[in-house]
Amino acid sequence: MTWVMANLGLIAERALSHLGLAVPAVIASFLLSLPVGWFAHHYRWSRTALLGAAGLLYAIPSLPLFVLLPTLIGTGVRDRVNVIIALTLYGIALMVRSVADGLDAVGVPTTSAATAVGYSTASRFLQVELPLAGPVLLAGLRVVAVSTISLVTVSGVLGVSSLGLLFVDGFQRGIVAEVVAGIVATVLLALAVDAALVLAGRVLLPWTRRSRPQGSLVTP
């Protein structure tokens, strides 16, 4: 506890740095998964191949990826961009399926009704399909966010600043409190981000909360 008290500033700095890696990766993987997931949803023949390929990304071991990426894209090993790109790939692996499933869940009657009343393809996607896929997208995004925050720690081994660096450093120097602080702070950060997403969902998807008929209704 004394170590924690004495190093609150350091923990806060590492936590911010941690978010600085995780948040861009989560956003990028969400945005990149949208067109891929839409393609898999819209063109059924591509679904198995696309979802399979996306899933395979997750099979790449993270540490070798962190080490290999710099040689592929010509950045330094400790460059934060490497870490963000690697995390984005893992995010895509999880998110593409959520996008495809979420769009599938919208249902043909609704999309066909939208077309019949005069939505164009683009307005239908942005104003009907995307919001209605919202609950499934949110569920996927929560998994991606938590998993990304946990994966960021691996980059600590390379010396990139994050909460992961706390337990790498603590392990090397035999400071148990630092190791524990790193783990607990990572879990707390994941929980906080998850709670923020749930809250955002309540604001952005209001109809999912008010779907039960109210008592005062009278037919017709």
Partner: peptide
């Protein structure tokens, strides 16, 4: 200011 699911079929 209700959602469709809060209405009866006739409404």
């Amino acid at each position: 200011r209700r959602y469709p699911s809060q209405l009866s079929g006739g409404q």
